[in-house]
């Protein structure tokens, strides 16, 4: 069974982070919130494993 990793997993972490910030450029607070919600749903589907998602939710609430 797959588990959540909290160890570095992105080869170019700075690029990924910058892409996230850039994507919010020019959006209002509301538009940003809505985009984040869609992004979370898209990433959940990409993960495709409810156990990993539960672990991620738990880690995020810590």
């Amino acid at each position: 069974m797959a588990h959540l990793t909290l160890d570095p997993n992105l080869a170019a972490a700075d690029d990924a982070y910058a892409a996230l910030i850039d994507a919010h450029e020019g959006l209002t607070r509301e538009e940003s919130d809505a985009m984040n919600a869609r992004l979370i749903l898209i990433l959940m589907n990409q993960i495709g494993d409810v156990q990993v998602i539960r672990e991620a939710l738990e880690a995020a609430r810590r």
Binding site: A34, R38, L41, I42
Partner: peptide, 17 residues
């Protein structure tokens, strides 16, 4: 409400939603 609307928004073009 935010996530509900996000699902509805995605559903028009993303089959997973």
């Amino acid at each position: 409400r935010l996530f509900r609307d996000a699902v509805l928004h995605l559903a028009t073009h993303a089959p997973f939603a």
